[in-house]
Design a protein around this nucleic acid. Structure first.
Lengths: 203, 203
DNA sequence: ATATTTATTGAACGATGTTCAATTTTCCTG
DNA sequence: CAGGAAAATTGAACATCGTTCAATAAATAT
């Protein structure tokens, strides 16, 4: 039942996604071109649309891979080192910063990509994204024991967003680019301050 | 000396920028098309390039207007209400959030727009952007009297970036959209926590 | 008025994402 | 294994962009 053809298709699909990943990493989201992809994986331009319905889908598939790698990086930071919740949250924030710096274009693609407003993004893509807050949730629960799950989720999201903002503007070279070590130090300082403030207000 | 022609040109240029502003506000940065602009201001497609060298320049000009309006909104928030530095900073953060919500596409265009890597952005555009941290700088100086100008500038930038991150991810409809009142409340809470934490660490 | 300088035009160019009829390949059946 | 059905692949064609530029029109200077 189409085994040979399906195999080839599947292999090509993987090649395509990897090629897209390389291309985004090297030239940014705007540097992703179907004709270049086709040439790189050895097929016709139109064949890309046999493997993927859209470039949108392609970008989402690359984004899924990026999110999973990011998830691994945050998991590693979560478990390694000082187990106190404060320092765990600081490590996670620094790990987020480092991942963004080391995977700048792929990380940017996660947020820069805009789909047509009418198209809804698939479930697997949504789930990928929501997993990120998970890492913050647990240490934060230890620090803020009086808060319910709901409130905790919101605060986790806020904390994540705040760090994201520091990384996003910090790595923007358009303005004065902040040197990475300085950025890491700033993030650590502000995360500690936020935690102190949150814990103090809790009591 | 070309007075009639220069007048017309100048009027057209203003029309063009205003039309671009409307178009971005209505359809986002991706909805900005030179042919639509030309039709709207009543000139040929190619004439757009007599008024502006690029669409890049056009986007930057619209961005400059947006930044100035944002600046006004933050200035208003800075002076109105409780003059304590804590509450002033909270008001500025909320004002940033409100401005972003009310000018969503124009505000997004400030950050979504990417120029070709080789092109350098003009001075007037850089200056516009650096003004924003100014609003935070003064109240923060009152709260952290021991810090020098340099350190203060960095912290101001971090605080701004953190709020920016909360607004950016909070207004993203791709994930679970946070209702605006909830977002405002979250921002106020985290800003107060950050300030408390920063002040406590200062001593 | 006429010549010269300048501004405006809109057709054309080169990319780009996407589609689709024609072709080639793969698979199933007798 | 042969040969027709089914499916996959192709690459030319389409629509839409930003951008350019020779030709035209307008404005200014003489």
């Amino acid at each position: 039942m189409m085994s040979k053809a399906l195999e080839r298709r599947e292999k090509l699909r993987i090649d395509l996604i990897q090629a897209a990943e390389r291309m985004i990493a090297e030239r940014g989201l705007v540097g992703l071109k179907t004709r270049d992809l086709a040439r790189e994986i050895g097929c016709a331009n139109g064949a890309v649309y046999n493997l993927v319905t859209d470039v949108d889908e392609l970008v989402l598939r690359v984004g899924s891979r990026t999110l999973h790698r990011l998830d691994e990086a945050l998991s590693a930071a979560e478990s390694a080192g000082d187990p106190s919740p404060q320092e765990t949250l600081v490590r996670i924030a620094i790990a987020y910063c480092d991942f963004a710096a080391e995977n700048l274009e792929l990380w940017r693609a996660l947020f820069e990509h805009r789909m047509a407003a009418d198209k809804i993004l698939p479930d697997w893509s949504v789930n990928d994204q929501l997993q990120l807050f998970r890492h913050i949730h647990h240490p934060l629960a230890l620090l803020l024991p009086k808060r319910g799950q709901e409130q905790l989720g919101i605060t986790a999201r806020s904390l994540f967003s705040a760090v994201h903002g520091m990384v996003a503007l910090g790595l923007e070279q358009r303005l004065v680019a902040v040197p990475l070590p300085a950025l890491r130090k700033e993030i650590a300082g502000l995360v500690r301050a936020m935690i102190d403030g949150l814990v103090a207000r809790e009591e």
